[in-house]
């Protein structure tokens, strides 16, 4: 057992009167891939967004319970949201590079956080693109508009953009749902490499993907975390009959 980097305790979330998360308790371990599975609308994406407070952008959200990141309560008053989001970055369902050049995309986070030194920027640019295996493809096209890249390249670029600000945790919200199977396989390989340096939490509706890439799996149903455990155990010997129904395809 390693130390958890994120500890979530009895977290509940309401959108207006609708309760989207019910008493979720889970530890996210460092340098592991935690997969969250469950049918659409079960709250897994909502849960992911509570981890870097992206739900703050939505009106009428109310949250109870605690989320500790590196031991600090992120919903406590006076939390530095900019610092939190630098440390807990997010990759979205659809690749969302900004409509600016490849280089400007990768260095965006650096500029935002006031890192203006050219050599630092160039060095991070190269290192981040190398980490996602885009450097050799794009090193001669750093000034190309990022929207001209393929979907897979765009998603890699979005991951590079996160890595550039040196986060601790990468939250991935169905990062492969807009990609074809080959591109998906390559992003999965990338995730396996990245977990050496980062902690990854991935939301996926693809159970095979969860089984392939993750160390820990949590199953969400109607806003409740039904079961969480080591991935092989959850997929071969689930403790809860509802998890079993879902992974055996009887439901969902």
């Amino acid at each position: 057992m390693t130390t958890p980097i994120i500890e979530v305790k009895t977290l509940s979330l309401w959108y207006g009167k609708f309760q989207a998360l019910k008493d979720v308790t889970i530890d996210v371990e460092i340098n592991r891939i935690t997969a969250l599975i469950g049918p659409s609308g079960c709250g897994k994406s909502t849960f992911l967004r509570t981890l870097n407070r992206m739900n703050d952008l939505i009106e009428g959200v109310r949250i109870t319970g605690t989320v500790l990141f590196q031991g600090r309560a992120i919903y406590a008053k006076g939390t530095d949201l900019l610092d939190l989001r630098q440390n807990v970055g997010m990759v979205f369902q659809r690749p969302n590079p900004f409509p600016i050049s490849v280089a400007d995309n990768v260095t965006y986070g650096l500029r935002v956080h006031g890192i203006t030194d050219r050599t630092v920027r160039d060095e991070r640019l190269q290192r981040s693109l190398e980490a996602v295996h885009l450097w050799s493809e794009l090193k001669d096209g750093l000034n190309r508009n990022a929207l001209a890249l393929s979907s897979e390249q765009q998603q890699r670029l979005c991951i590079a953009r996160l890595i550039a600000v040196e986060p601790e945790v990468l939250l991935m919200d169905e990062p492969c749902s807009a990609l074809d199977p080959i591109a998906t396989a390559r992003i999965e390989e990338l995730m396996a490499e990245l977990k050496k340096l980062y902690t990854i939490v991935i939301v996926t509706h693809n159970m095979q993907q969860a089984a392939r890439v993750s160390d820990t799996t949590g199953y969400f149903l109607l806003g409740e975390l039904i079961e969480v455990g080591p991935t092989p155990q959850v997929f071969t010997a689930p403790r809860d009959s509802r998890t079993e129904d879902y992974i055996t395809g009887r439901f969902g």
Partner: peptide
Amino acid sequence: TYREGSIALGAT
């Protein structure tokens, strides 16, 4: 998604 991506990187 542009806005989300930027906010998620810690931009104001």
